[in-house]
């Protein structure tokens, strides 16, 4: 396994990163050493300063995502439900309480989003993506993304993440990982069911449309579901327990 897939790409990134780091260091004071800010510094090399993502188009933004969602992901890396060796390596010997504290830190960050990615995608693909996100496709048993991720697609606290402000490559990699079982969540794994019903073309359509959408002014996750979600999801314990038949 090679953790640095493209060396030349890494070099370019290093240059960008160095420049960004230097500018950031000049602009903002360093966090106090004995603080949670200091303790999560290792996260920021890939996820960007304060978790706002870097420009390399893969590592996802973690700033402002719901705390329950972030915590679940850290646990999933720790127990092998998600596979990214460096993430597992970083979190595997930490307590639930400490991982929760890290998740809370990034959930607290309320930072402006950069403009969405400019992608050249055929209009028909974007239209199909928008249809799946907003309405779903009953003939393919695909629910609308918004029925779980919130009407504005910014997620629902505490465990459903926003779908906006993420690179297309990251979105496609995640849905792909769910399709082939290398990313899992607590059972019943609703997202795995949905991903398995998505065709490769539809994965591309959904990811492309989502990646090109601007993030609304108030991007905080909704406090509750507008309507009960259409599927049972193990990572939303309250929902599972209250609406189980």
């Amino acid at each position: 396994m090679r953790l640095n897939p493209k060396r030349s790409h890494a070099r370019r990134c290093a240059v960008v990163f160095l420049a960004a780091w230097t500018v950031a260091a000049a602009q903002s004071p360093s966090p106090p050493l004995d603080s949670i800010d200091q303790r999560v510094q290792p996260c920021m090399v890939c996820h960007g300063k304060e978790g706002r993502a870097t420009s390399d188009g893969y590592y996802p933004r973690i700033a402002g995502k719901p705390a329950g969602y972030l915590f679940n992901q850290l646990i999933n890396f720790r127990n092998g439900h998600r596979h990214f060796p460096m993430m597992t390596y970083l979190v595997e010997r930490q307590s639930d309480a400490y991982l929760q504290e890290m998740a809370d830190y990034f959930a607290r960050q309320d930072l402006p989003y950069p403009p969405p990615q400019a992608l050249s995608v055929p209009p028909a693909v974007l239209a199909r993506g928008e249809q799946l996100v907003m309405e779903g496709d009953a003939s393919q048993r695909i629910p609308a993304c918004r029925s779980c991720h919130g009407a504005r697609l910014v997620g629902v606290a505490p465990a459903v993440p926003s779908l906006l402000g993420l690179p297309r490559d990251y979105l496609m990699a995640q849905i792909g990982a769910w399709k082939n079982g290398t990313r899992r969540a607590a059972a019943p794994d609703c997202m795995a069911e949905v991903a398995k019903d998505l065709s490769p073309a539809d994965v591309n359509a959904v990811a492309s449309w989502l990646a090109t959408q601007p993030v609304p002014e108030n991007a905080k996750a909704d406090a509750e579901f507008a309507e009960p979600p259409p599927r049972q999801c193990g990572s939303i314990p309250d929902h599972t327990s209250t609406s189980a038949p």
Binding site: L3, A14, F17, Q38, Q41, M86
Partner: peptide, 9 residues
């Protein structure tokens, strides 16, 4: 406290 990974950058 942790050490940041520099392999990506």
């Amino acid at each position: 406290f942790g050490m940041p990974p520099f392999s990506p950058t």
